[in-house]
Amino acid sequence: MTLARRLFLLVGVVATAAGFAVVAGVSLGLELTDIFLGLVAALAALQGLRYVQRRRETPMNTTVTGDPEARVAVPIPGSDFDDDLVSAMGRHTHWAARKRVVDRLESRATQALVARDGRAPEEAAALLDTGGWTDDPVAARFLGASVSIPLRQRVRLFLSGQSSLTDRAGRTVAAIERIGTDDDSTGERR
């Protein structure tokens, strides 16, 4: 016990004893004014509020129990790409992640054009540059082609709120899925 604690204990015991003595009718010759009373009350309330405030600053201490009932969690394939998409929209890792997203989609589009559509690698690269690999101007633009999006579609995109990076990446993935399936006419679906 520290010295301060002992002192408080002493004061506490003495004051409580004196209080009970007064209750019992013993006169200790103490006179108390209203001002003194108010002062004591204010001090008590002030100290009290400080203690209450301490609760807000003190985090609860408790054991955290795990989830042994669940099987060990393994990722689903492609979760790394989803993570990249999230951090591409974050503040700090913005550019690096965005580049990873675009680079990965670009190389998959090229591979798909070669493997599924039977194009030569140079031909595939040229198609990506011109945007001729897909009917979806959003996907074409996302992989670097300077295709203009028709005004009507642009308004529709704006209204449907599909202009975020995630939506553009999603449309690009859909466009790559369609490579080599002879189903190139669905550029404006959704």
Partner: peptide, 15 residues
């Protein structure tokens, strides 16, 4: 093991 649940999952299926 691939699905179509997310964009990344669909890309993983293509890959």
């Amino acid at each position: 093991p691939t699905t179509t649940a997310t964009i990344g999952a669909r890309l993983a299926r293509i890959e």
